[in-house]
């Protein structure tokens, strides 16, 4: 079960992806992204496929930009660290990089194994000069994510939209 939260944003995120003219979506799945992944997989105009590891996301999204397409990566906080080493590719090329990550290990987390990355990864991203925009509540998710995407693609920056555990709904066991 989860705490009751307004989860309309889980449907609306797909519209945000379309509004940002994103044609490629790669993901290491998380329950918070499940609806978005399903809708992207069903859209013939979006090239959507899973990754083994978040490290791949950076190269694939930069490669898509190299080929003239906007891309987006979906992941969970526990795997963001896998992408950090590859982010040098973004800084070194001036390509945009846009990721939407769902957070664990923070708001009422039950599983302590999630907390090392959940607590530390926003600071780690900032340490490597990635812009971190945080959606604290459900009402924030769409505006924060759309602004993050616009910032990434219009200003050629690496930007993570972090969706807090308060917005996704903390798992309660």
């Amino acid at each position: 079960m989860v705490e009751a939260v307004n989860s309309d944003w889980k449907d609306q995120l797909y519209d945000s992806i379309k509004a940002l003219k994103i044609r490629q979506v790669v993901y290491v799945p998380d329950a918070g992204h499940a609806k978005l992944i399903d809708r992207c997989l069903a859209d013939p105009e979006i090239d959507c496929f899973p990754l083994v590891n978040e490290f791949e996301a950076v190269g694939i999204c930069v490669g898509a930009w190299l080929g003239g397409r906007r891309a987006c990566a979906l992941m969970q906080s526990s795997g963001i660290g896998n992408a950090i080493n590859a982010l040098g590719l973004v800084h070194s090329t001036g390509a945009p990089f846009f990721a939407i990550a769902t957070m664990r290990g923070e708001w009422g987390e039950f599983n302590g194994w999630q907390t090392p990355m959940g607590q530390g990864i926003p600071k780690a991203l900032e340490a490597v000069n990635v812009v971190v925009n945080r959606a604290e509540t459900a009402a924030d998710v769409i505006p924060v994510t759309e602004a993050s995407g616009r910032l990434a693609f219009n200003s050629y920056l690496p930007v993570f939209s972090l969706i807090s555990q308060r917005a996704t709904g903390a798992k309660v066991f």
């Binding site: 044609r23 490629q24 090239d47 490290f55 791949e56 996301a57 950076v58 190269g59 694939i60 999204c61 930069v62 490669g63 898509a64 930009w65 190299l66 080929g67 003239g68 397409r69 891309a71 590859a86 590719l89």
Partner: peptide
Amino acid sequence: PTALGLATA
């Protein structure tokens, strides 16, 4: 991975 993203685009 970069070549993969380029090839799909």
